[in-house]
């Protein structure tokens, strides 16, 4: 059995946590309308972790999923099969 690469697990956690904290920020009723102090606390407790998770996950993923040495890819593309696409099918 082929072992799943480590980045696959990180991807799932990253996506899940970002969605979770975006949802936490958006819980209806929180904070109460008109409560300025609560609005700032609510923002600090949900938006700051959202940023940390987004950037933390990205850094981990970039480390786990290395790139091959950068190269100019502009001349490598295969020609798009225009006629096949234009006809709407194969």
């Amino acid at each position: 059995m082929v072992k799943e690469p480590a980045y696959k697990k990180t991807e799932k956690w990253w996506l899940g946590l970002v969605v979770l904290f975006y949802a936490l920020y958006n819980i209806p009723g929180l904070p109460a309308y008109g409560d300025s102090g609560a609005a700032i606390w609510h923002g600090a407790l949900t938006i700051i972790p959202l940023w940390i998770i987004s950037y933390g996950g990205m850094v981990v993923l970039n480390r786990q999923r290395k790139l091959k040495p950068a190269r100019d890819c502009s001349g490598e593309a295969e020609p798009l099969q225009e006629k096949m696409i234009a006809k709407g099918g194969v």
């Binding site: 990253w14 970002v18 949900t46 938006i47 940023w51 987004s54 950037y55 996950g57 990205m58």
Partner: peptide
């Protein structure tokens, strides 16, 4: 501020 950190995720996936 709540949508900006979604950009890396959307770009990655």
């Amino acid at each position: 501020l709540s949508y900006m950190p979604l950009f890396p995720v959307l770009t990655y996936f």
